[in-house]
């Protein structure tokens, strides 16, 4: 038994939403932020995957998209500018995207700590598959060797978070060749399936990720709709 007080854990509702259009994802986040801010709802961890899309953060240099318009069209990739931190990145099928909508007040009001905590969630998640993720100083994200497996881009307004992370699970990495991910030219990208030699159901990943999130953020993570979270026993 610990001696620390029995402060009740904050409740965070986790949802697996499957494939969500990027626009819809933005709207869901806005609504969740608004409901949390106005006290109408608990914190949320939205877990989903996007159809092919390149997104440019506030710090983005559009020359980091290498493909020309024609290439983009022929591969059905959309381009979005968006209000998160960071440069260019790619989202697409097979990648687990997480949007934690949490209130960092009162005890977690530290932007760097938040980003490090998200990294910790991703490191623990891939750790379940025997993969060791690391941090590289000055390069936010989760790396395996010299290759990035998890990207982070966050927005914070009055200490309520939005946007979040993208973990390459079964991602088709060839799409990253059309961009300079996060503007970093001398490092590569990788995926969990490439590292362990098999694909992993994204729903299973989502549920592991939700549990790791609960540990790192000390939240009581709950599920409100199991149709969205079935998952096999594998």
């Amino acid at each position: 038994m610990g001696i620390t007080g029995s402060k009740p854990q904050r409740i965070c509702e986790a949802q697996w939403l499957g494939i969500v259009q990027y626009d819809d994802g933005l709207r869901l986040q806005e609504q969740a932020v608004e409901r949390l801010r106005s006290g109408h709802d608990t914190e949320q961890l939205l877990l989903l995957e996007h159809p092919h899309v390149f997104t440019l953060g506030r710090g983005a240099d559009s020359s980091n998209i290498l493909a020309d318009r024609q290439q983009l069209e022929s591969s059905a990739v959309e381009v979005h500018e968006t209000g998160r931190g960071g440069d260019v990145t790619y989202h697409g099928p097979g990648q687990l995207v997480g949007y934690p909508i949490v209130d960092l007040k009162p005890d977690r009001c530290d932007v760097h700590r938040y980003v490090r905590d998200i990294e910790e969630v991703l490191i623990k998640t891939i750790g379940e598959f025997g993969v060791t993720g690391t941090r590289i100083h000055g390069l936010t994200g989760v790396w395996v060797g010299n290759e990035k497996i998890g990207a982070i881009g966050v927005r914070i307004a009055r200490w309520i978070t939005s946007h979040g992370f993208a973990l390459n699970v079964n991602t088709d990495l060839s799409f990253f060749r059309m961009i300079v991910p996060c503007g970093i030219t001398d490092k590569g990208v990788t995926s969990l399936s490439k590292l362990i030699g098999r694909e992993v159901e994204l729903q299973d990943m989502a549920s592991i990720c939700a549990q790791k999130f609960a540990e790192v953020f000390d939240r009581d993570v709950r599920i409100s709709n199991s149709l969205l979270f079935h998952g096999s026993t594998a």
């Binding site: 953060g57 506030r58 998160r84 932007v111 980003v115 000055g138 881009g153 927005r155 914070i156």
Partner: peptide, 18 residues
């Protein structure tokens, strides 16, 4: 008071300041 006034950016994080 508390209305968003400006946005700042640090490594990978954008924040709205009231």
């Amino acid at each position: 008071r508390d209305e968003p006034l400006f946005e700042i950016s640090t490594d990978k994080v954008d924040a709205e300041i009231p």
